[in-house]
Amino acid sequence: MAAVSSHAGLLSGSYRVGMDIKLDGISHHYGHTEVLRNISLEIPAGQIVCLVGPSGCGKSTLLRLIGGLERPGNGRVLQVGAPPADSLNPLTFVFQDFALLPWRSVKGNVSLVLEDHGIRGKRSKAIIDDVLNRTKLADFADALPKQLSGGMKQRVAIARALAVNPAVMLMDEPLSALDAQTRELLMDDLVALWTRQPFTAVYVTHNLAEAVRLGHTIVVLSRRPGRIREIISIDTPISERRAGDPVCQRKHDLLWELMREEARAADEELIDG
């Protein structure tokens, strides 16, 4: 308990010390299909770790294991260090399909995740206003999801995730349902959010440009059964990365070299049946 409160003391600054996640020899099967094999990985606090890999290699599965929505067949997911004391839901998902309740307004969707923690009235309103401002949704607080564009829906989902003050955000292809321009804009938004207040994230994507833009480290998984093939880190601060930046471009090409063989092999595997 004492450790937690001293931790909380550190948090009053703008830079948050979160908790690390450690994956210890994770393997997983669905029936007779082996999906993940012996994955060991550290996700340090305050960093964005991107997971890339060919389709069906178990990225979403790994994310569900980290978030506790499924139990690993083998190995353990460990939290190192306590989450911030004011974190309502340390491991928080942002889903590809947004997962907004269509019968609740933008405001209501955010308040959904606060209500269970007994946060109502003024406190709830303060949090909702804050996260909607941070995601530039303040003018749409009363809109229903059906009235929003895809990009706005995903911003609502991000606002909802921010509202519970997560220690780690688990994002499963959060931008892949969106068009290229919206994706570009939302990436800028994510960079701005991170720069303002660094958060820890595991970010699953198919899109190497996203990985190079947002990831401090990029973990390349092999085709199924997913193993770690390569871990690439990019030292350029994410706020300074631009499209066409030579360092980023080199990393992008390197990733594509790695992925190309895997993608082709995965593709052929499907054809073989």
Partner: peptide, 8 residues
């Protein structure tokens, strides 16, 4: 699943 992931 979303509800569960937020600890509802």
């Amino acid at each position: 699943r979303m509800g569960q992931s937020f600890g509802l």
